[in-house]
Simulated scan of single mutants.
Amino acid sequence: MQLATIFLGFVVFGFSENIKGPAIPRIQLDFLLNESQIGTLLSLNALGYLIACSFTAFLTRKWGIKRVTVAAFTVMIISGVFIFFSNLYSLFSASYFLMYIGNGMLEIGLAILGARIFVKNTGMMMNLTHGFYGLSSTVAPLIASGLMRVTINGYTLDWRGMYLVMLSLSILPIIFALLSRFPGDDIKQEERVPFRILLKDPVLWLMVLILSFGVVSELAVGGWLVNFLEKSYKWDAVTASGMLSAFFVCFTLARLLLGPVTDKIGFTLSLTIFSGFSAVCTFAAILGEEAWAFLFAASGIGIAMIYPTVMAFISKRYPNGSDTAITFTVTLMGLFSVIGNYLIGGVIEGVKSLFKADSQLALLRGLQAGYGFIGLCAALCSVTGIILYVYLHKRQEVI
């Protein structure tokens, strides 16, 4: 029951995060938004994610992980209902914000549960469970594109109905969570590593940077790749969504197959190698333009490994303080996500302004620069991994 809750939880999480790719161009058209406004919207929603991360660990200690997990899925269902009825941009923004509150609670809840359960073959099991996120992310853009065209009794679901249907799937993990018994809620407070001790550890701060750069690069693909391909290369929605799905195929296979590699070569070295690979693929895809677009998908192989490997690292280094360490790193990661999405939209608009207004070349260069920022985040993740490895190697603490 615990595994079913985690696996289905990551499936729903993947859907909620990555159905936005095909939906954003339609949302943009309905509400007449420019790229900068889309970036601001995604940043504000990441702020909701950040807020949820900041209080979920506290709720976990007070309520227990079971109630927190059920509450997270319930919030996501409610947000889907509100999105369906959002005819005004203000209501839509609030509904989308609420969905990210649920996402943030779910992110922390599943991470804490995984850290408590997977005490052996941690890297492999963390990547396997997160592989279910990749599985749902792979099919999410295609399912979303298909659902938006479904007509029931003369009513076309469009993006609003699509969000309602997809987020309603949260009922499935709720059922398994209610039937489960979760470990670790009985750990006494005095047995936990004090928060002030964690804050003094430079390794934790380096993990914050690695996770932040890696996740900004990962999540930005779901929000910007379809938009990039449609507007830069005039791809149709189905083809562009197919490339996003190809990204998540690579993403998923990496998590399902390469988890044992992280256990074998070490978590620290894995973070450096895989994030560097993603950066190289992203920059090569941008410079090679349309002919090299397949490398956008290949970049998923590297970036897929960052989040679960960081979680495995934390669970090994802080066995009695993983709840607090995970909450701290993921909360600060959420802050970076707010800034990251805003910067991507701002970079696109800034570079466009350097060229002739409203020209196709201006749009192309702007989108290339914005996507280049995604590659830069992956590169910075790799550089920070090198710094972490050197620091730990000197102290003979490499994990």
Rank of each mutant, 00 (worst) to 15 (best):
Y318M: 05
G321C: 10
S322H: 08
S322R: 04
D323A: 12
T324C: 05
T324P: 09
I326R: 07
T327A: 15
F328T: 07
F328S: 06
T329Q: 05
T329M: 08
V330F: 09
V330Y: 07
M333G: 02
M333D: 00
M333H: 03
G334I: 13
L335M: 13
L335D: 07
L335N: 07
F336Q: 00
F336M: 10
S337C: 14
V338S: 04
G340M: 07
G340I: 08
N341C: 00
N341T: 01
I344G: 05
G345I: 02
G345V: 09
G346T: 15
G346E: 14
I348A: 05
E349D: 14
G350Q: 11
V351T: 05
K352I: 01
S353W: 03
S353T: 13
S353N: 14
S353V: 08
S353F: 06
F355L: 11
A357G: 06
D358R: 10
D358C: 10
S359V: 08
S359C: 05
Q360M: 08
L361G: 02
L361Q: 12
L364S: 06
R365L: 11
R365N: 14
G366I: 03
L367A: 00
Q368E: 10
G370S: 07
G370L: 02
Y371A: 01
Y371E: 03
G372Q: 00
F373I: 08
F373L: 13
